[in-house]
Design a protein around this nucleic acid. Structure first.
Lengths: 375, 375
DNA sequence: ACTTTAGAGCGAACCGTTTCGCTCTAAAAA
DNA sequence: TTTTTAGAGCGAAACGGTTCGCTCTAAAGT
C-alpha cells in the first residue's frame, strides 16, 4: 500500500463524515424535517434520487437531448413533484453564460430612453434574456465605470446608447470579448455594430419640407453634445445650403439634450426682432420644451410659427394642431439591435471581421404645424 | 489492498490525465500559447500557482480576512500582474447571492418611474448591487410573469412599484424567501415592507390650499387604477367634505394614469358650461397633459383657472407662471427603500415578524398658479 | 523554561450544473 | 443468425469560488 493510496483512502472517509455533518446542520434534510416553509429549491440531484437516473441523463433532458420515453416521463414527473427549476447561476458557471445583457443608456430619465428600454426589454425577454441597466447620467466618466461594473457582472453582451462621442472607453469590452451593439448613437472614432437612422438625412428631409412650404427664415434647436445631434445639425445646414438659404447665427440654437434647451431657446427665438417663420426641433425632449414655450406665448402654430419636431412619443398623439414629426422606427430598431446582439453572442464571431451597420429609414408624419408661405 | 483503494487510485490517475487533456484542448495553456488576445480571465487558482499559497488563504484575503503582511504583498502582486477579478457568478453559486436586485415597475416609459429608477440605480450601486429591471407595461399578468422571471434569475431582493392592487401574485417571492420592498404603491390585501407617502394626506393638503384661496368649484383629474391614485382621490373627497363643499360628478375625472388622461379631461372641464375654478391634478403625467390642454386653449392660469399639480419633475422647473406642486421626496424614498432591502437581505430576517412601513412627508411647493377668490 | 492561546495557513468538500469519453443495449444491416 | 452501428445512459471531472475543521507557529502568560 503506497502512501498515495492511503491518503486517498483517508480522504474518502473524511469526506463522508464531513458531508453527513453538513447535511445534518445546514442541508435540506433538516429543513424538510423541520417542516420549514422556505424549503431549499430542488436540485438536479433530487431528481436523480427520485428517478434513479444519472445526472448526465437528466441534464441532457433539460437541454433538449434525447432520452427514452420512459425516462422522460420519470423525469417530468419528478420535476413536477419537486417544483424543480434549473439554477441558472450554476449553469452559467459552467457554460460561461449569464443570459444577461448589459444596457447602458445616457440618461434613464429621458423619455426617449424609456421608450427604447421598453422595446429592448420586451425583445430580450423573448430570447430568455434579462437586462442589467446602467444609467450614465450624461456623464462620460460614469459611463466608463458602468462598463467595468457590467463586465464584472459577466454580461453576455452589451447594448449601448452612449454619452461619449469617443468609443475609446469601450476597450475593456473588446478585450473581454463581450459583443457590443450601439443604438441610436455611433462613435466618432471606434467601429462597433450599430443600429440607428441616418440622422443627417432625416434632418435634411425634415428641413426640406419647411423649405418646400416657402420658408426661408428657419431656425434649429438641437443638441450638439452627442453624435446623432451633430448629424442632425449637419443635415439642417446642408438642406439650407442646397436651397441657397443662409443661416443666421442667432437661428442656430445648440446645447445639451433637454426639455429646457427647447423651452428656453424657443422663447428667445420668439422674442427676436426678426423671428424665424419656422423652427426645426432636433429631438423629443427639445420638441416638447419648444412646444410648451410656443403655447405659453401669445403666438400659435402654424399661423405665427411653423414647427417640425423629432421623435413620436405619447405627447404627439394628443397635440392639436398635430405637429409634423420625423419618426424613428424605434420598435424595429430595438428588435434589430437585439437580433444582432443575439447573433454575436451565439456565434462568438468577433465583430473585428465585419462590423454590421443598420440604418433604418425614417418616416415623416404629416401634421398641420406648417404654414404654407407664398412668395 | 481493498477494492475501494484501488478504485480511488485509478480515479486519481484518470483525473490527472483527463485534466491534462482538457487543458491541451480548451484550457488557457493553449490560449496563451497561441497568443490569442482574448485570454481567459485569471482565476484564484492562477494566483495560487503564482504565490504558492492555498486557495483558502487567497479567498480569505479577498474577503477581507487577515493574512500575513508578506502573503498579502504576494497576493496583491499576483492580482496586479494577472489582472485578476473575482468571478461573481462562481461566488454566487456558493454564497447563494447574486448581488442583483430585481426591480419591477408598472411602466418604464413613465417619467416618474424613470426618475425613481435613476435614484434606485445610484443607490444600489453604492451597495455594490446591480439591478434587473422588468417593465410590467401596466399589465397585471405581465407583472406576475416578471416575478417568475426574476425569481429564476435568483435575485437577492425585489423592489416593486406595482401595477396590481392585489398582492396575491407576490406569493412565489414569499415562498422563495426573497425580501420585497414596495415603493410608492402598496397593496390592498397583502402586507409588505413599504416606502411611500401618505397619499390621502398629500391630496388633502393640496386641495386645502385651493379651498383656502376661496375656491369651491374644484375638479380633480387622477388615476383610479392604482392604490395611491385612489388614496389621492379620497384625500380630495375628504378635503371637500370637511369644507362642506359638494363635488359634482362631472368634476371627478378618473381613468388610467397617463398624459392623455390629463389632456383630454382638462379640455372637457374647460368647455363645461359651468367650468371649475380650480383643478387638482393627481400625478405627473396627468399634470403635464392638463397643462398642455390649458396652454392650447384660450384660457390661462391663474386668471381663468387655478391649478395644483403633483410630482416635481423637470418640466415644472421651467413652466411659467410657476405651478403649485405637491412634491414627493423621491430621492429619499428610493434611498430608504434600498436601505430597507439591504437590511432584509443582510439579516435574512423575514418580514413576517415585523413589516416596515415608511411614509415620507410631502412638500407643497408654492407657485403662482392659484388665483385668490374673494367671496 | 514550559504551557497556553490566538490566529494564519491549508486540504478538501461543496455549491448545481454541463460535458467528455466511455459502456451497453437494441435495432438495422449483412 | 451474426456483425454493425446508432444512440441512450453513466461516472466523474470541471467551472471558480467559499468554508469547515484541522495543524502549526509564535507571541503571551506563568
Amino acid at each position: 500500500m503506497t502512501f498515495d493510496q492511503e491518503m486517498w483512502y483517508e480522504c474518502k472517509k473524511e469526506a463522508g463524515r464531513t458531508r453527513a455533518n453538513r447535511f445534518k446542520i445546514f442541508g435540506k434534510e433538516m429543513c424538510r424535517e423541520a417542516g420549514t416553509e422556505t424549503h431549499m429549491p430542488a436540485t438536479i440531484r433530487d431528481i436523480r434520487n427520485k428517478t434513479g437516473l444519472s445526472l448526465a441523463t437528466i441534464s441532457k433532458y433539460l437541454n433538449g437531448g434525447n432520452v427514452l420515453p420512459r425516462n422522460r416521463q420519470l423525469i417530468e414527473a419528478a420535476i413536477e413533484e419537486l417544483h424543480y427549476e434549473v439554477n441558472e447561476i450554476a449553469r452559467g458557471l459552467v457554460t460561461n453564460q449569464t443570459k444577461l445583457v448589459g444596457v447602458m443608456v445616457y440618461d434613464i430619465e429621458s423619455l426617449f430612453v424609456g421608450n427604447m428600454l421598453h422595446y429592448i426589454g420586451a425583445e430580450l425577454r423573448r430570447h430568455g434574456y434579462g437586462f442589467l441597466i446602467c444609467d450614465s447620467f450624461n456623464d462620460e466618466e460614469v459611463e466608463a465605470q458602468n462598463l467595468q461594473f457590467l463586465l464584472k457582472k459577466k454580461v453576455d453582451g452589451l447594448l449601448v446608447i452612449p454619452v461619449n462621442i469617443s468609443g475609446k472607453f469601450m476597450e475593456p469590452a473588446r478585450k473581454a470579448g463581450v459583443p457590443v451593439v450601439l443604438l441610436d448613437r455611433a462613435f466618432r472614432d471606434e467601429e462597433f455594430d450599430f443600429v440607428g437612422i441616418d440622422n443627417r438625412m432625416a434632418a435634411y428631409r425634415a428641413v426640406n419640407v419647411l423649405i418646400e412650404n416657402g420658408h426661408e427664415r428657419i431656425a434649429v434647436i438641437t443638441s450638439d453634445v452627442e453624435y446623432s445631434g451633430i448629424h442632425r445639425l449637419e443635415g439642417y445646414m446642408e438642406a439650407m445650403g442646397d436651397a441657397g438659404l443662409s443661416v443666421r447665427p442667432e437661428y442656430r440654437r445648440l446645447g445639451k439634450h433637454s426639455f429646457e434647451l427647447g423651452y428656453k431657446n424657443m422663447k428667445e427665438l420668439l422674442s427676436l426682432e426678426e423671428r424665424p417663420t419656422a423652427v426645426f426641433l432636433g429631438n423629443y425632449e427639445t420638441t416638447l420644451g419648444g412646444i410648451m414655450a410656443v403655447n405659453e406665448s401669445e403666438l400659435s402654430w402654424p399661423q405665427d410659427i411653423s414647427i417640425f419636431g423629432f421623435d413620436d412619443l405619447v405627447m404627439s398623439r394628443v397635440l392639436r394642431p398635430k405637429i409634423w414629426i420625423a419618426r424613428q422606427p424605434m420598435e424595429q430598431m430595438c428588435a434589430k439591435a437585439v437580433e444582432i446582439l443575439m447573433e454575436r453572442i451565439g456565434s462568438r464571431q468577433t465583430p473585428e471581421e465585419q462590423v454590421i451597420k443598420v440604418n433604418f429609414g425614417i418616416q415623416l408624419r404629416e401634421g398641420e404645424s406648417i404654414r404654407r408661405l407664398e412668395k
